[in-house]
Design a protein around this nucleic acid. Structure first.
Length: 550
RNA sequence: GGCUCCAUGGUCAAGCGGUUAAGACAUCGCCCUUUCACGGCGGUAACGGGGGUUCGAUUCCCCCUGGAGUCACCA
C-alpha cells in the first residue's frame, strides 16, 4: 500500500510537518538540572486531594530546581468540560499556595510560548504527527463499530485470548487503500489507531523514579490515537504535548503505571525521548475493613472544597500532604517549625512506595499545631474571611465587636499565658467552640452535679457579692471563701487526703459557675471569660439559671 | 482472569546484612492543674508465611499469601 497516498487521503488538509513544530517549540533554555513539570487536569473543575498531592510534588520539583511548572488543560473529553473550571483550578491551588509559571489561565505572554495549553486547540499539531505516522505505516484508520468491537471482545473472552484490538483481531489493520477510500466516501466514521510493532514475547525495561526498574511485556494493542471526532486520546496527547512543551518530569498517579508500555511505544514511534516519570502512590481510605483508593464519588473528604467549607487552614492540609509525600519531611519540620515548606529539601527518592491511608486524626493534630503558630491577627483574619463566605448570617453575631472577638481568640489560644493552647483545628469546629461567648449561640445548661437548691443558693450568694472589677487572684480568693461557707474546701491537698470530710472542693464551686455562665463544665479560664462577656452578661446568665432552678 | 505495583505497631513511617527495631498520630496510665486544653513522664503495640544466600537476615533472591491498580473512541 502507498502510505503517502493514504496520508493524503486522510489528512490532505495538513500542510505542516513534525519539523515545523519541533522548530516552533525548541528545547527550553534552562539552567542545568532544571525540571519542567506540569499539572494536566481535565476541566471538570473538581480538584481533589490527590491532585493537590501531586501538584505539590510537581511544584516542588520544578521550583526547587529552578525550572517551570505549568498548567495544561486536558479537554479532549467533551463530557468532562465544566464552565469556569480553569479559573476554579487556579484559584483553589492558589489557596493552598501553589502557583503556575505558565499555561492555561496564566496571563503571561512572554512565558506562554509553548501553547496553546488547551488540547482542543492543538488538533493541527496532533494531526501533523498522525499524518506522519500514517506515512510511515504506523497508523491506520479503523472503521469498526462499537458492536463489532464488543463482539471481538466476547470471542476473545470465550477463547481466553488477550482482549483488545491487536494482532489478528485487528481487522482494519489490513484494509486496502480502495476499501478505506470506499468507507470514507460512504461516510463511515472512523478512529485512527497505532499499528503496534510490539510483541508479547519481548519486554521493555522502564525506570520509574519512585518505583525503580519495572519490566513489562511490550505493548501489542493497536490503541486509538485519534477519536472519531479527530480529537486525540490521552495517550497520544500526552506524548505529543509533553514532548513539545518540553516537560522533563511527569508526576502522575500510579494508575498510569499500566499504560507505560503504550506510552513507551508511542514515544519511540514518534521519535521522542521519554520524560522522567514519578508515579505516585494513591491516597487510600479504609472502607469496611479494607483499603481502597480514595474515590471522588464516594468520599467527600477527597474534595478540596470539603476542606475549605469546613475551614481547614491551607497550611495544615499542605503540611499533612507533605508528610505523606516525603517520608523525612515530618522530622525536618519538627526541627524547623518556623521555616517555610519551601526550605525543605524535597527529594523524589523519599516518596512513598505504597498508598497511605488518609488519616483525619493526624490531619487534625497538624492543623492544631499550625493554628498555634499563627499570630492572633492572622487567626482573626482567617476566621472572618471564612465566616463571611460560609456562615454569612453569623457575621453580625461574631464580628459585631471585633475587639471582643480578638479577646476570645487570645484566650482560646492561650496568648499571654505560659503556653499556647491547641484548641483550634478548623473554622467550623472553632466557631462551634465559641458558642458560649455569644448570647445568640449560647446553649444553656441546667445540669449540675449537686442538688439544685444548693446550687441556687450558692449562685445567689455569688451574685450578691460579685465584684466584676476584682482581678483574677482576688476573684478566685472570693470563690474559695464562698465555697468554704458551704463546705467546699479551697485546700486541694486536704481534699485529696480525705474527700469525705468535705462536701467538695473549690473546683466544684467553679464548675457550678462555669455551667451557669458558659453552659458547659469545660472552658478556658473563667475569670477571663467573665471579663470578655462583661458584668451585665455574667449577671444576667447566672440570674437566668437561678430562675430556671426555681 | 492476564499484566503490574506494594508489604515494619491501629495509622504515617525510620531502617538500606549485625540496632535494646527510631520518631509522629492514635490509645492507655501518671504528674501538673479550680474544669477543659496545653505541657511533662511513662506504658501497650510491628518486621505476613515458607524456603534459600550468608557466620548472621526486617534488610538480598525465590515461592506463597494478602492488599492495591489496570485491562475504553475517560482521563
Amino acid at each position: 500500500m502507498d502510505y503517502n497516498k493514504l496520508a493524503d487521503l486522510l489528512f490532505g488538509q495538513v500542510d505542516k510537518t513534525p519539523e515545523y513544530w519541533e522548530e516552533k517549540f525548541p528545547e527550553r533554555n534552562l539552567p542545568e538540572g532544571a525540571q519542567v513539570t506540569r499539572m494536566a487536569p481535565s476541566p471538570t473543575g473538581f480538584i481533589h486531594l490527590g491532585n493537590l498531592y501531586s501538584s505539590l510534588a510537581d511544584e516542588r520539583i520544578a521550583h526547587q530546581s529552578g525550572g517551570v511548572f505549568y498548567l495544561r488543560i486536558e479537554d479532549t473529553d467533551a463530557k468532562r468540560k465544566v464552565e469556569g473550571a480553569v479559573e476554579t483550578i487556579i484559584e483553589v491551588l492558589k489557596y493552598f499556595g501553589i502557583t503556575f509559571d505558565e499555561g492555561a489561565g496564566i496571563d503571561d505572554l512572554v512565558r506562554n510560548v509553548y501553547g496553546p495549553y488547551f488540547q482542543r486547540q492543538r488538533v493541527e499539531i496532533y494531526h501533523t504527527y498522525v499524518k506522519d505516522l500514517v506515512k510511515r505505516g504506523l497508523a491506520y484508520p479503523c472503521f469498526c463499530t462499537e458492536e463489532e468491537l464488543s463482539a471481538i471482545k466476547e470471542q476473545q473472552t470465550a477463547e481466553k485470548a488477550l482482549t483488545g484490538y491487536h494482532t489478528k483481531w485487528a481487522r482494519c489493520r489490513n484494509l486496502t487503500y480502495e476499501e478505506i477510500e470506499a468507507n470514507i466516501k460512504a461516510g463511515k466514521p472512523y478512529v485512527m489507531r497505532l499499528r503496534s510493532t510490539g510483541s508479547e514475547d519481548r519486554e521493555i525495561i522502564f525506570q520509574d523514579t519512585v518505583k525503580g526498574k519495572i519490566r513489562f511485556p511490550e505493548n501489542i494493542q493497536d490503541i486509538v490515537i485519534l477519536k472519531s471526532d479527530g480529537i486525540p486520546t490521552y495517550h497520544f496527547a500526552h506524548a505529543i504535548d509533553d514532548h513539545l512543551m518540553r516537560t522533563t518530569t511527569v508526576v502522575r498517579g500510579e494508575e498510569w503505571l499500566s499504560s507505560v508500555p503504550v506510552h513507551y511505544e508511542l514515544f519511540h514511534a514518534l521519535g521522542f525521548r521519554m520524560p522522567k516519570y514519578v508515579h505516585t502512590a494513591h491516597l487510600m481510605k479504609m472502607d469496611n475493613g479494607s483499603k481502597r483508593k480514595l474515590s471522588k464519588r464516594k468520599d467527600p473528604e477527597l474534595s478540596l472544597d470539603f476542606y475549605r467549607q469546613d475551614g481547614y487552614h491551607p497550611a495544615g492540609v499542605k503540611v499533612y500532604l507533605m508528610t505523606l509525600l516525603n517520608s523525612n519531611f515530618e522530622q525536618w519540620y519538627d526541627k524547623h517549625p518556623d521555616s517555610p515548606i519551601e526550605d525543605f529539601p524535597y527529594s523524589v527518592k523519599k516518596m512513598a512506595q505504597s498508598g497511605a491511608l488518609f488519616d483525619i486524626a493526624k490531619l487534625h493534630d497538624i492543623c492544631k499545631n499550625e493554628f498555634a503558630k499563627l499570630d492572633p491577627q492572622e487567626v482573626f483574619d482567617f476566621l472572618k474571611t471564612w465566616c463571611r463566605t460560609y456562615q454569612p448570617d453569623m457575621m453580625d453575631v461574631y464580628f459585631a465587636d471585633d475587639e471582643k472577638f480578638m479577646k476570645i481568640i487570645n484566650l482560646c489560644m492561650g496568648i499571654g499565658g505560659k503556653r499556647r493552647r491547641k484548641d483550634f483545628c478548623y473554622a467550623k469546629q472553632i466557631f462551634e467552640s465559641l458558642a458560649m461567648y455569644f448570647d445568640e449561640t449560647l446553649v444553656p445548661s441546667y445540669e449540675f452535679s449537686y442538688d439544685n437548691e444548693l446550687v441556687k443558693t450558692i449562685l445567689q450568694d455569688y451574685l450578691a457579692a460579685y465584684d466584676h472589677t476584682a482581678n483574677s487572684g482576688e476573684w478566685f480568693g472570693a470563690l474559695k471563701a464562698l465555697g468554704e461557707k458551704y463546705g467546699f474546701t479551697g485546700d486541694m491537698k486536704a481534699y485529696k487526703a480525705d474527700p469525705d470530710a468535705y462536701k467538695g472542693n473549690v473546683s466544684h464551686v467553679a464548675e457550678m459557675l462555669r455551667i451557669a455562665i458558659t453552659g458547659s463544665s469545660n472552658s478556658p479560664d473563667l475569670w477571663t471569660i467573665n471579663q470578655i462577656l462583661g458584668e451585665e452578661v455574667v449577671r444576667r446568665r447566672i440570674g437566668n439559671v437561678i430562675e430556671h432552678l426555681n
